[in-house]
Amino acid sequence: MILQLLTGGILIGGVYALMAVGLTLIFGVMRIVNFAHGEFVMVGMYLTFILYSVFGINPYLSVLIVTPVMFLLGWMLNAVLIKRLVGAPHVTQIFVTVGLSMLLMSLALIIFGADYLSVRSDLTTQVIDLGVLLGVPQVIAFVISMIVSIAIFIFLKKTFTGKAIRATTQNRHSATLMGVDVKKIYALTFAIGTALTGLCAAILLPIYPAYPTIGLGFVLMTFVVVVMGGLGSIPGALIGGLIIGIIETVSAYYFDPGWKEAFYFVIFILILLVRPQGFFGQIGAEEL
């Protein structure tokens, strides 16, 4: 049973991890707390739903469309709004990104209503039985999440642009001095972070229905994951996501499921007290 719980936790944790990778990039590089991150997932889910219901495109295929569209959306949002927030006081950042989140939720409510829109395919309740039961859509989501997270990690480590992004995370002033075009890096980071939410959205739609407030359920968890793993750290987001997933399933089984939020928030607070930079964060990175 514990094996079943662990695999269940790892599968759901993989999805949290992918969401957290986007957030941690933005958080780490731009020092902007993006509270609209969950709503980007929601927008992506509606986009995927439209592609499915109007054009009959399989959600997994629509990754190829939704991800670039969200990349563009992220780029545009950065150009008109987000770039003005870099270096602005926290209160301003909160107002703007929370405002953006409310705006997106209300728009979704106006356009799509409060209905729960879901994509049904035969895959939805399929399982792989390996002694432990693995849901097929969950496995697909997990595998894609892992591949993409690792790809992003390699991109940051190996490519020149990736290195420029990391340099900006470490110290934006020194990076500027070294000739990194910080503004461009910001735009790119925000667009990548947003594109990742689109990717998440497409692989989540076969599991969860789309509705205007679905982002709220995910975004709190994602923040916990990001802080736990360390701001700006991709491996941190991965491991943080998996840990939260496991805490959820194990605590819900052995205690009351109503307690699972309490469990991971207690762990979250403990980590903030003992190791405020998170597992993999560099010391000082938590100073916003």
């Binding site: 269940g8 759901i12 995910f218 399933t249 089984y253 499921p257």
Partner: peptide, 20 residues
């Protein structure tokens, strides 16, 4: 008797418990 938050993303643990 199990209570849970209706915003939850996962109920599999409870279902495993019920299976047993």
């Amino acid at each position: 008797i199990d209570s849970y938050n209706s915003e939850t993303n996962d109920l599999s643990s409870t279902i495993h418990k019920y299976k047993e």
